[in-house]
Design a protein around this nucleic acid. Structure first.
Lengths: 140, 140
DNA sequence: AATTAAGTAACTTCAGTGATTACATTTGTC
DNA sequence: GACAAATGTAATCACTGAAGTTACTTAATT
């Protein structure tokens, strides 16, 4: 959803876009978009103005925004679930497993983010534009 | 939790372990462990017998089980949330964004799994055993 | 001043996960 | 064969997090 919003902003390069219009593209509620935009503002990816005729726009060019930045801006939760209950400390495995796995998972998450870094918002836009099946009617 | 269970099984090499004992280490309910074991059985990572004196054990040596296999066995959901509502097809971005992002996310997930492949269950066990702080009392 | 749009709080809805209980089924042992 | 031990499995509940919704406040433009 965050990438979708940013893609729309990139699409209308520089123009201010209201949360209502973004919400229409994502097909959701403007408030959801605004909450999302707050996270993106904190990450300095978008600038949002208030008042009439205002809205949001990218704070950098689409080529200088990659999906890892978007991921970090939005995804505050760890991808790997940490169990609610603590393991049994009396068990030799249970006692130490958590900190061991934390390292493994941190490494995996870093690998994931490194991959996301390879894709910029500009790349997403050109992929969207290139997928011509979207723009054209199906020919028989 | 899956790694924890498998680590305990690796710890007691070859011995059959009951779901009740595994549940005690993870500090959860035996039924939860059994449901987890079903997924691990399907992935051919453990063998489980029924009846008295039975239980589960690894179906391969810990050195031949890596965390990517565990991840695939257990994690049936995609790590990236796909919005419940479909984007607005009338919007040029909304119309195509989904399939574009699917590719990006598949690549990121592949990167994540490649990283997890590098860690075997044997590696987890030796890391757990090596973290001596667990076995010793704090000597301030 | 009026209008437009974001910021934000409060509430509801919904899905996923873990937890719990209960029961059927299978296996090993006496 | 009877009994005990252990899994398979269904039904139900509680909890959590995300999305959605409504409503109100605040700020900026005209």
């Amino acid at each position: 959803m965050a990438v979708h919003v940013l893609a729309v902003l990139a699409y209308k390069e520089g123009d201010r876009v209201t949360s209502a219009l973004l919400a229409a593209s994502v097909n959701t509620n403007p408030v959801i978009v605004r909450r999302l935009l707050l996270a993106l503002q904190r990450a300095k990816l978008v600038e949002t103005g208030k008042g009439a005729g205002s809205g949001s726009r990218l704070s950098r060019s689409p080529g200088h925004i990659n999906l890892a930045q978007v991921y970090r801006a939005v995804e505050d939760v760890e991808p790997f679930a940490t169990p609610s209950r603590k393991p049994n400390a009396a068990c030799p495995v249970g006692h130490c497993i958590r900190e061991t796995l934390d390292k493994v998972f941190a490494s995996a998450q870093a690998a994931l983010e490194r991959d996301l870094e390879k894709t910029t918002l500009a790349g997403v836009i050109s992929a969207v534009k290139a997928s011509g099946v979207c723009a054209r009617k199906k020919v028989d």
